[in-house]
Design a protein around this nucleic acid. Structure first.
Length: 434
RNA sequence: GCGAAUGUAGCUCAGUUGGUUAGAGCGCUGGAUUGUGGUUCCGGAGGUCGUGGGUUCGAGACCCAUCGUUCGCCCCA
């Protein structure tokens, strides 16, 4: 028999205690922000019938990138690659009884079969925040402000990220009416816009010319250049500027300014790949010169709940991923030094294990987290273990301490120690909790 | 799925034009030190050189394949 490998499955990582500290810190912060906006937490099954993904979005997601199998009852199922179809299904199932507007969030685990890269694993976690049942642009405003707050809750400042905003309806109008492209051409042009920063100006021009075709490429390219030069909505050609879709974006910006958001910009070239977006779309970008990647995005998708046969329900949402947010925080040095969640490492000295056990039990009843070392190893080994585990306090319990009921509490960070009675130990630790 | 780089101890890496028994630092572990650390000193464990073939008298090194990792492409819900 060959030796078993210790490596984790490709694209999935092991989460050691020190990794979980970071993950919990990020999840806790997300949850705090979502709850502060009155969002309610939900979850959905890890497995879904494959059809709910087939019915929407790009075919590649379903055919190439889902983990799927046939279960013992011949049902075709997939490990969820995203949350939006599941939450839409849940809303559709309780369409009549759910109080609207509904503000829901989840922190959940997903899998996609794709090539792992920096910030992109096959197994990943995402926060999903959605607001259902409100048609106004106030929903978009709330979602975008919340997205910004989410990064600020980690200590990020306005200049460390930028929120780019566009409207699918502007894109549609631009492609069909203004550039006179049919739907196939529009599809290609959207993809080209999407990778505008990855290709050279010449290649962009050449490929755009190909999409327009021989007869129209000159006029088309002139119009395209004009569009891409637009730094604000005021720069847009008049026919586009007058459209309702642009008005909607203007309303949104008024709301965002009112909320004090300074780092949102209009970007006519922002597309977002997903087919189901129907209105305003946005994407948050890191502004760090070495990491100008897209962090996460979202937008309005009004068609999904209706797919389940329920009366249609409008929706606006976004979904940041754990690994991209973690990379953002690392890039900007925003991750705090996260110590152990344990408060005290208790070390019995000499023949005092029984007395220490009793003391530890009393401490735990006071909501204090105590790890007891009953290894009977040499004293300095036990102390080193506590230090290595980054536990903030060590409690020495010897026979003298037990008889006097006065215990030695050592603060590992400062190196100082005090002789304290039980109640004072509790006070010190409780103060440390805040 | 495509392209490129890369793989030697737990980690970071040396290893000469192919030449005996595979090296360092850090880490781990035991002791010096029976109630106080991350310092110091001494000892120890840990590698079929990613894997499988091939070339050669001889391969960690050269060739082929394969797997993993990283960076791009594709895609990005």
């Amino acid at each position: 028999m060959s030796k078993l490998l210790t490596a984790s499955y490709k694209g999935a990582r092991d989460w050691y205690p020190e990794d979980i500290r970071i993950r919990n810190y990020i999840f806790d912060t997300w949850r705090k922000v979502a709850l502060s906006y009155g969002y309610e937490e939900y979850d959905a099954p890890l497995l879904e019938p494959i059809e709910i993904y087939e019915a929407k979005s790009g075919q590649e997601l379903v055919s190439e990138q889902t983990y799927q199998f046939t279960d013992r009852g011949d049902r075709r199922v997939a490990i969820r690659p995203e949350m939006t179809p599941s939450v839409s299904r849940m809303l559709a199932a309780k369409r009549q009884e759910t109080p609207l507007p509904a503000r829901w969030f989840s922190i959940a685990q997903f899998m996609r079969y794709e090539r792992p890269q920096r910030g992109r694993d096959r197994e990943f976690w995402q926060l999903n925040c959605d607001i259902f049942g409100d048609e106004s642009v106030l929903s978009e405003a709330e979602i975008i402000v919340m997205a910004s707050d989410l990064l600020k809750a980690f200590g990020a400042s306005d200049d460390q990220f930028v929120i780019r905003i566009n409207n699918r309806r502007i894109i549609n109008f631009m492609m069909a009416q203004y550039l006179s492209l049919d739907s196939g051409q529009a599809q290609l042009m959207i993809k080209l816009f999407d990778r505008r920063n990855k290709v050279s100006a010449e290649d962009f021009r050449d490929q755009a010319g190909d999409i327009f075709g021989r007869d129209n490429s000159e006029v088309g390219l002139r119009k395209l250049t004009q569009l891409l030069a637009a730094r604000s909505m005021a720069d847009l050609p008049e026919e586009i500027r007058e459209s309702n879709a642009v008005k909607e974006v203007q309303d949104l910006f008024t709301q965002l300014e009112r909320a004090g958001l300074k780092n949102a910009v209009f970007d006519i070239s922002l597309m977002r790949g997903l087919d189901y977006y129907t209105g305003i779309v946005f994407e948050v970008f890191d502004t760090h010169p070495e990491n100008t990647r897209s962090l996460f995005g979202g937008g309005r998708y009004d068609g999904l709940v209706g797919m389940f046969g329920a009366e249609p329900l409008s929706a606006v949402g976004f979904a940041p991923g754990l690994s991209t947010v973690q990379l953002f925080l690392e890039t900007h040095k925003l991750l705090p030094d996260l110590g152990s969640a344990t408060d005290i490492y208790a070390i019995p000295i000499g023949d005092s294990l029984r007395g220490t056990q009793k003391l530890v039990t009393k401490l735990r009843q006071q909501n204090i987290r105590v790890e007891l070392d009953f290894s009977e190893r040499k004293f300095d080994k036990q102390l080193k273990t506590a230090i290595k585990k980054q536990i903030p306090y060590v409690l020495f319990v010897g026979e003298d301490e037990l008889s006097q009921e006065l215990y030695t509490l050592k603060n590992i960070t400062t190196g100082t120690e005090e002789k304290l009675i039980f109640d004072d130990i509790v006070k010190v630790i409780h103060r440390n909790h805040n």
